[in-house]
Design a protein around this nucleic acid. Structure first.
Lengths: 222, 222
DNA sequence: CGACTTTTGTTCCATTCGGTCAAAAATTCG
DNA sequence: CGAATTTTTGACCGAATGGAACAAAAGTCG
């Protein structure tokens, strides 16, 4: 069983056996024509598109429009449409987790930090801001079940968020801020669930105040 | 401004003004070839398809496969793909609301009834059962913002559920079952939010027990 | 400089898409 | 029966799709 690395890359040669030689872009050597675009910017633009319209409703033409790249470049750099989706998901997850960590360390008081997190979720969920909820959450709803690669990213992201929340809850419990006696992991799942629910509500309701209200209600139960 | 009813129906005649004469199927007269399919069954099959794969990932060919009808029949009976989606959404909403009402009247104790509701949401959200969550909620995430007709159905459905919950909470408060002092409508929105969040979790996690745990946690805060 | 390597921009292609149409079939009404 | 009406059927349409191929361009390296 030879190497069957799929993407991204350009097919250089087909063995008679059916196996392929693929050039991996952006590796080691500096020889060859250099990239003329900012990879992060392109990834961001593609993400915005997928985020706003979903995977199936986004065409390659849409992607070339928002990224400014042509099909060939997109294909060569990231692989096919689905591989590009995975890349944007990983990109989002990284950025997102950093932001969550920021929120959860924003105050001396762990519980107050969780409040910051929840309120930001509510505000971002509202249609008044952009009303698109969480990119990963949306993609999960569109692609799952049925897409193992997306599933892996989604599951890992969710666990990362829940672990960050659980850790913060542990700190709160340690200093006696927590009145709720449920385990930190249970409470973390609960908080994540409320966030996800607010994202859904934000899709069809632009009432930010009601979402913030729900966030505070959830916070008050801890 | 003449009648501009759009669908479903077959265009019989175009006025020179641009207006159309449309025959409304399944009305009054009994003349003509009778339907050879069960409308409700077809609606159900189409709903299953949309529910499992979403709107954009479902092709007309998929729909003809699962319903057994040909394109022409589908078009004649329900209109185009989008109109069929709306029909399945309305169908689902009707069935769903009846089931919710059942849950909320299942016990003498209003609070216990809400527990029944929440636990069923958790169980249905889990991938162990079907893991597809709520059809309307999924469609909202895929189509909104940007689809006013879907938005109207989603909003109405959500309000109906929230009103049913709020009414049940009122009854609970009246007999002193409620310890939480927040308003019934706030608590109803909270419960709905937790449900929606569990649906999202169920997409990538099959752990029914953890979902039930969250349901009970939410219930205990009332 | 000239061989080599990678990106870029364009073109092409087979397939699939949602939707339309006209004729055949099935029924009621006169 | 025959006219009228509706549904069914299957062929058909133009447009758009995702992806592949390829020559030109733009660099590096010996």
């Amino acid at each position: 069983m030879a190497c069957d690395i799929l993407l991204p890359g350009r097919i250089l040669y087909f063995f008679p056996t059916g196996h392929k030689v693929i050039s991996m872009p952006h590796t080691a050597t500096k020889v060859g024509r250099p990239r003329q675009f900012d990879e992060a910017a392109v990834l961001g633009a593609a993400m915005e598109q997928f985020w706003a319209h979903g995977f199936h409703a986004t065409s390659l033409t849409d992607l070339t429009t928002v990224t400014g790249l042509h099909k060939g470049s997109l294909y060569g750099a990231f692989g096919d449409k689905h591989a590009l989706l995975l890349a944007t998901l990983r990109h989002y997850s990284k950025v997102r987790r950093a932001k969550v960590d920021d929120d959860l360390a924003s105050h001396e008081s762990p519980l107050e930090s969780i409040g910051v997190y929840l309120k930001r979720m509510a505000r971002e969920a509202s249609a008044q801001s952009h009303g698109r909820g969480c990119f990963i959450s949306n993609t999960a709803l569109e692609m799952l079940p049925g897409d193992p690669q997306v599933a892996a990213i989604v599951t890992e992201h969710r666990h990362a968020i829940q672990n960050a929340l659980a850790g913060t809850l542990d700190r709160a419990r340690a200093i006696g801020e927590l009145k709720n006696t449920h385990s930190s992991s249970e409470l973390a799942r609960f908080i994540y669930t409320v966030s996800a629910g607010m994202w859904e509500r934000g899709r069809s309701s632009s009432d930010e105040e009601q979402l913030l209200n729900t966030a505070e209600l959830a916070l008050s139960t801890l």
